[in-house]
Write a protein that binds this DNA or RNA. Structure first.
Lengths: 207, 207
DNA sequence: TGACACATACCAACCGGTTGGTATGTGATG
DNA sequence: CATCACATACCAACCGGTTGGTATGTGTCA
């Protein structure tokens, strides 16, 4: 599916939307501003998107595609043990926290909060993005839950909880203007997983 | 400094701001809309607040005061055991999740995300509100950490993590348009606390 | 091959309505 | 009569969206 990106006005607008909306939010970003950031005119904008809301939905989908590729190609899938894969995922998320706050936080978490009542189509696209990403964790989490003492937990619930922690961590990082607070919460989530799933394993032993 | 709360245009505007901004967000809410919701004129608005940003800061402070009273007067402080008080706090938070999403979510979490780059004064007021609330948990958490196997955790970090989970839960609840997802994450946080602090106590409950 | 019909991609100028904010009153209270 | 608390009237800038238009394909059929 990796066709060559034709660097058209549409993709330039979507890339600009991800960048600017993560900085300023959806409602604080004007169409004119987006056009200036993308280096296109307003006519081009409304040629490709029938409204600003339509662009919001497309930006959420664009985000899903981009992040989907990033996580699918990440090295944390390599280990044989699902526990190591899940911990590797959290390591990977922690390693992504660098640069300015706007650079590492989540577009769809930001937009969902702003649009949940004003623009339901955008909200739905945002939830699809978050839930779709959470689903990539479910198989490993299900394997961990099986054969642990925590069999009443569902993999889906736990996968969504990881996203809850990440989204909440981004909010606090923005509010405090300090990325380190996000790493702290990921560490708490790592500890939760260790307490849930690592107790039964003799990890010091070598086979 | 107003000890008594006269039903003045200022308080009506602040109450309206909490209500409307939780629904639509800060940037999507106009001054005219706020005035209409409060039943006052624009002249009254700019008599009490020198700008919309100034109202945002005042609304965050207003929120801190209102929620501060709510939590200070809540019954979860009664138990002698700090573990029971912390779990009571989470029960209380879970019980507050009812009605529409806009009714139970957090004003300052919403505003912080929107204003962290565009309106730093609002962002700072929002973080003060969250951090101030988190501090009310620190003494009990410090008591739990003392005399547990988790002595490397700081009470401050754990208190902020509770707010991370709650803020993240609100985002997912908005995105999914389903409050129950927030309760699920609070349950995960309860389980984390049980695993961390309840092991030494004779409790029959397993995860 | 060339000419016609049509589609896509984009542009500059413009529109009516809304925005945050201001300037100037006015009635009540002390 | 001075101050406060609010109301009325208004503004320039900006908002999302539309307009009429151009330049460049692209498929079709004689």
């Amino acid at each position: 599916m990796t066709t060559h990106a034709p660097e058209t006005a549409r993709t330039r607008l979507l890339d600009a939307a991800v960048r600017v909306i993560r900085e300023k939010g959806y409602h604080a970003t004007s169409v004119d501003e987006l056009c200036a950031a993308a280096g296109v005119t307003k006519g081009a904008f409304f040629h490709h998107f029938k409204s600003k809301e339509d662009l919001g939905v497309a930006a959420a989908d664009h985000w899903s595609t981009a992040t989907g590729g990033l996580f699918a190609g990440a090295p944390y899938h390599a280990p044989d043990d699902p526990f190591d894969r899940v911990m590797g995922y959290l390591d990977f998320r922690a390693a992504l926290i660098r640069g300015t706050t706007a650079e590492f936080t989540c577009l769809v978490g930001t937009m969902a909060q702003e649009t949940f009542l004003t623009n339901p189509p955008i909200r739905d696209a945002c939830f699809d993005s978050i839930a779709g990403h959470a689903e990539t964790l479910e198989a490993d989490l299900a394997a961990l839950i099986r054969g642990s003492t925590a069999e009443r937990i569902t993999a889906k619930s736990l996968a969504l909880h990881t996203q809850v922690v990440l989204q909440g961590a981004f909010i606090l990082a923005k509010a405090k203007d300090d990325p380190s607070i996000a790493g702290d919460s990921i560490e708490h989530l790592r500890r939760y997983f260790r307490l849930l799933f690592d107790a039964h394993k003799p990890r010091e032993n070598t086979p």
